[in-house]
Every structure is written in C-alpha cells, then in structure tokens.
C-alpha cells in the first residue's frame, strides 16, 4: 500500500515521501493538491472518499490506514 500511495504523492511533491511525512508540512501539499490526490486514490482503488474524511489526513500513514480500511471493507 505504501508504495502505491508514494507513487501518487511523488507526482505532487518534490520531497521524499515517508510513512511519517506530514502532508502539508514535510511534503508541502496544498488543499488543491490533496483534492487531486484523493481523486487519484478513488480511481486507483475504486473507492469513494468523502470530502470530510480528507480533513483527517495529517500524515502519509493516515492515508495508508484509511485506504486499507476502505479497500478491505469494500472487498
């Protein structure tokens, strides 16, 4: 999962993506970047992400946990 997430995030940041990287701090992502990133997750994992869930993403790990939960519940 980390590699998949990293692959998408790397298109939006010039910084190294680690599990503990903070999205807005370490990776300098804007709310606009997050909107585009989430759209990519939706396509890649065939899930639907609620707008209000995005607010809870602080670190890369948060995204991984969220996606793991979403993809396991949709299986």
């Amino acid at each position: 999962m980390f590699e998949s997430v990293k692959g998408i995030l790397e298109n939006y940041t010039e910084y190294e993506v680690r599990e503990d990287s903070s999205l807005m701090g370490d990776l300098a992502l804007s709310s606009f970047d997050m909107a585009a990133i989430v759209a990519e997750f939706e396509d890649k994992f065939s899930i639907s992400v609620h707008d209000r869930d995005i607010i809870n993403f602080v670190t890369v790990k948060d995204i991984i946990n969220y996606l793991e939960e979403k993809t396991s519940s949709s299986n």
Partner: peptide
C-alpha cells in the same frame, strides 16, 4: 505538534 495538528482544520496546521 502532530497531535495538535489533528485537532486543527487543515489551513491552521503547523507545517514545520
């Protein structure tokens, strides 16, 4: 600070 950021709306989060 990470714990504080979780309580704040995204635009108020401390980046560094």
């Amino acid at each position: 600070v990470e714990a504080l950021n979780r309580k704040l709306p995204p635009y108020k989060r401390i980046a560094e």
